[in-house]
């Protein structure tokens, strides 16, 4: 990795990163974009993990979105950055819990939030789930649906 650039320093002029700032983009395994070639794939040197987005890329896109005046989009990218490292089954379980009537009570959601914060450092996501828990309680969403 080259010198890290603080993402907040990025602006719309750095976009698209793949064209304007390829120096800042690395795959999850630390490879530069131009190492993603058909030959490298055929040789097994590049795999599916190298074609995934990274928390760093999402943080940089959040900075660009913010610079373009899109604060809510930026926040979504920041929540997403926290979810990159969260395994698929945990993501799907959390999503399922957030659906109406899936969690039996408020505590179930609060416990899920705690796990996300503790195991994955997903502070924003955890706060978001806690916010939902409060609203679901007020709106009586912890009711039996099926």
């Amino acid at each position: 990795m080259t010198d890290p650039v603080p993402p907040q320093a990025l602006g719309t002029g750095d976009y698209p990163l793949s064209e304007k700032r390829p120096d800042l983009v690395r795959t999850a395994t630390g490879k530069p974009l131009d190492s993603l070639t058909l030959d490298a794939i055929a040789a097994g040197a590049v795999g599916l993990a190298d074609l995934a987005i990274t928390p760093q890329a999402l943080t940089m896109q959040a900075a660009i979105a913010r610079a373009a005046g899109r604060e809510t989009l930026a926040r979504n990218f920041e929540r997403a950055a926290e979810l990159v490292g969260v395994p698929q089954d945990v993501i799907l379980e959390t999503y399922e819990l957030l659906r109406p009537g899936r969690a039996k009570d408020k505590q179930t959601l609060l416990d899920a939030a705690t796990r996300l914060r503790r195991d994955y450092g997903a502070d924003r996501i955890a706060a978001f789930v806690e916010e939902a828990a409060a609203v679901y309680e007020r709106r009586k969403l912890f009711t039996y649906r099926f």
Partner: peptide, 23 residues
């Protein structure tokens, strides 16, 4: 309608972040 659609604004917003987290 939202609840009958089996979601809430938070579940959908979570899904939005999940999609972005997978690029």
């Amino acid at each position: 309608t939202f609840v009958d659609g089996d979601d809430t604004p938070w579940s959908k917003a979570f899904l939005a972040a999940a999609y972005a987290s997978r690029g």
